[in-house]
């Protein structure tokens, strides 16, 4: 009976009434959303030309903007993003790779 109860509990908790997440953090976003987020930062960077703004937007996805862009680049290549978009992401990477993040940069 324990096995039957366990099966019922799993079925109910996973299928009928799975956990509904609210108020989540960008760090937990799905990989494709994160890649698109990085692309948006790269697009906005075209306009703003301010690496500190781009960095502050990227750290919302995690502590290392460089790693975040690298992961997004891998995803973008695997999923055949447009060449122009890959160039944008690469330009963003080149612009921020030499910048160290300080605690005050995003205040």
């Amino acid at each position: 009976m324990i096995i039957i109860g366990l099966s019922l509990g799993l079925f109910y908790g996973r299928v009928i009434s799975p956990v509904k997440l609210v108020d989540t953090n960008p760090t937990d976003l799905r990989e494709d959303y994160k890649a698109d987020y990085v692309l948006m930062v790269a697009e906005a960077y075209l306009l703003e030309k301010d690496p500190s703004i781009a960095l502050c937007q990227l750290v919302k996805l995690g502590n290392s903007p460089k790693e975040i862009i690298e992961q997004a680049t891998v995803f973008a290549v695997e999923n055949r993003y447009e060449p122009d978009d890959l160039v944008l992401i690469n330009n963003l990477y080149e612009s921020i790779k030499g910048i160290e993040i300080s605690g005050e940069i995003c205040q």
Binding site: I4, G5, G9, R14, T24, Y33
Partner: peptide, 29 residues
């Protein structure tokens, strides 16, 4: 026994290993 199994199943599904916690959707932000 059924109740214990049920509780263990729900605990696993809702608390210990909820589905998709590390792959959330944008609308849940």
């Amino acid at each position: 026994g059924l109740i214990i199994g049920l509780l263990v199943g729900l605990f696993y599904s809702w608390v210990y290993s909820p589905v998709g916690v590390l792959e959330t959707e944008l609308y849940t932000l």
